[in-house]
């Protein structure tokens, strides 16, 4: 009887490994099932396996300490499995607080004046009121930047992210020229970053896709190390006004931390658009038009000068 039970558990285990990421975490639940020293409590727990069958196991076999998954566990050139990251930026909520820039700079160990996020003062026509437009890398589905890279140092991942391999980039800057959104910045010289040795060492190599290497190109990487843990990128978290929504297109859901909305519904009802749609780059960042604004437009000193 006990023998049979173990067998069925083993079978279940094998199936769940095949099941992918969900299965992986399920498998870790049973990580101790081969140990002989486990004392069965007699309390049975019903679990749903990935293939839809309900199995019953003793609660003693359940390990609730799920080990954290690190980005390095999946192929850096393939992307986070089961995800297709998408961002929605609500222009009616932005008042140029620039917390997104600060959050990004902090997260990516960038100097204060440098960030992968831009907040631009935009005006569609002379009669229209200006508005603030935060811009990240749009992680286009038809990216002009990856096409021109001569060494495959920037590439499109299965999770939608346009990534950079700073250990391969030769610094020709063709991708910067090819990007119509000026999303890419260049590591012109170490002094620009003003990092001390400890800070420079604290940057996890390849954990965040853009790491600082002299003479290579960097940009917003959509923080895949956060997305993988189902957490939000720092620009999203830092925004006090909930401008940024982030999510997984496969889940059809985006969240700004306060509210979670259905992506397709949001895009449809709020008349979402993509910046310079006519170029055919198919950005993964959508904008909600600046209507019914939360704040009146207030110009900043820097923008007045420019």
């Amino acid at each position: 009887m006990i023998e049979e039970e173990t067998n069925s558990r083993r079978e279940f285990l094998e199936k769940s490994i095949v099941g992918g990421l969900t299965a992986l975490s399920a498998a870790s639940l049973f990580s101790s099932c081969h140990g002989d020293d486990v004392k069965e409590t007699g309390e049975k727990v019903k679990l749903l396996s990935p293939d839809g069958t309900i199995v019953e196991v003793d609660s003693a076999y359940i390990n609730t300490n799920i080990p954290e998954l690190h980005l390095s566990e999946h192929n850096i050139r393939e992307g986070v499995p089961g995800k297709k990251f998408v961002m929605v930026i609500d222009l009616s909520r932005c008042k140029n607080a620039r917390k997104c820039k600060e959050g990004c700079s902090k997260m990516h160990f960038l100097p204060k004046e440098r960030s992968y996020v831009k907040v631009e003062k935009m005006q569609d026509s002379e009669m229209a009121a200006p508005y603030w437009m935060p811009m990240t890398c749009f992680h286009c589905d038809n990216p002009p930047c990856t096409k021109v890279c001569p060494v495959d140092a920037t590439y499109k991942l299965s999770d939608g992210i346009v990534s950079i391999d700073n250990n391969r980039c030769i610094g020709c800057r063709f991708c910067m020229v090819a990007c119509p959104y000026s999303a890419r910045i260049f590591n012109w010289g170490e002094e620009l970053y003003g990092l001390n040795d400890a800070e420079a060492k604290a940057i996890p190599d390849h954990d965040a896709c853009s790491s600082h290497k002299l003479g290579t190109v960097e940009k917003c990487d959509f923080c895949p190390q956060m997305g993988e843990k189902n957490e939000l990128p720092d620009c999203v978290k830092a925004c006090p006004n909930g401008v940024f929504y982030f999510g997984n297109e496969y889940d059809d859901a985006v969240t700004n931390g306060d509210e979670t909305l259905q992506l397709s519904e949001l895009l449809k009802t709020k008349a979402a658009f993509r910046y310079l749609e006519e170029l055919g780059t198919k950005p993964r960042v959508y904008y909600l038009p600046p209507v019914n604004r939360l704040f009146p437009f207030k110009d900043s000193e820097e923008s007045k000068n420019s």
């Binding site: 096409k147 001569p150 060494v151 030769i170």
Partner: peptide, 26 residues
């Protein structure tokens, strides 16, 4: 001279991708 990482020039031959106009130029 224009390259940010001239030390990695060998990448053009190891990882060269034919769809890049730079490779056509080379």
């Amino acid at each position: 001279v224009d390259m940010g990482r001239p030390d990695r020039m060998i990448n053009l031959f190891i990882h060269g991708r034919i769809q890049s106009p730079i490779i056509w130029d080379v």
